[in-house]
C-alpha cells in the first residue's frame, strides 16, 4: 500500500503531504498536518464541524479524499485570522457569546465567512439555510445567527 504524494496550498502555504488512498482530507489535516482546528463530529457530512474551503468552495473535509486535494487551495479555521488580527466574524462571535462549548465554532466560522464572501447582505433566513449543515447543540443558533448578521452589517459599513 503505497502512499500518495499530494501538493497543495493550505492557508496560503505551499504544503506537501503523503496519504493513504482512503484517508480523507480531514484525516490528513488533523493527523498528518496537525491542523486540529478542523473537527470531526460525524464523519458523514451531517454536522459541518469539518468545514473547510477548497478552491474557494465550502466543503466537508470528511467527504473528500486527501488525494483529491492535489493542486487545490485549502483554507481551514487556522487560516482565518491574519496573524494576531482576528477576522471580524471571530471577534463578533466572542463579543456576542455565539459559542458555548466551541466544538462547532471552527466549522461555523469557516462556513459563515464563505457566505459573507458571496453575499455580504444575507437575510436571517439565508444565514439559517446556509448554516443548516453546521450543527450546534449548545446555543439554539440564536446568538450565532445574530453574530453573522451583525458582522455582515459591520463589514458593509466598513467597506
Amino acid at each position: 500500500m503505497s502512499r500518495i504524494h499530494v501538493t497543495t496550498k493550505i492557508n496560503g502555504d505551499a504544503t506537501e503531504f503523503l496519504c493513504e488512498a482512503e484517508a480523507t482530507l480531514l484525516d490528513v489535516l488533523r493527523d498528518e498536518l496537525g491542523l486540529t482546528g478542523t473537527k470531526e463530529g460525524c464523519g458523514t457530512g451531517d454536522c459541518g464541524a469539518c468545514s473547510v474551503t477548497v478552491d474557494g468552495r465550502l466543503v466537508c473535509s470528511c467527504l473528500m479524499l486527501g488525494a483529491e486535494a492535489e493542486g487545490c487551495e485549502i483554507t481551514t479555521i487556522e487560516g482565518m485570522a491574519a496573524g494576531d488580527q482576528l477576522h471580524p466574524l471571530q471577534k463578533k462571535f466572542i463579543e456576542m457569546a455565539a459559542l458555548q462549548c466551541g466544538i462547532c465554532t471552527p466549522g461555523i466560522l469557516v462556513a459563515a465567512k464563505s457566505l459573507l464572501e458571496r453575499n455580504p447582505d444575507p437575510s436571517e433566513e439565508e444565514v439559517r439555510y446556509w448554516l443548516a449543515g453546521n450543527l450546534c447543540r449548545c446555543t439554539g443558533y440564536d446568538k450565532i445567527i445574530r453574530a453573522v448578521l451583525d458582522t455582515a452589517a459591520d463589514m458593509r459599513r466598513a467597506s
Binding site: G45, D46, R57, L58, V59, L63, A111, S114, L131, G133
Partner: peptide, 9 residues
C-alpha cells in the same frame, strides 16, 4: 441534496 457543504461537491 444535503447542506451547503455537500452542495460544494
Amino acid at each position: 441534496i444535503g447542506s451547503t457543504q455537500v452542495q460544494g461537491r
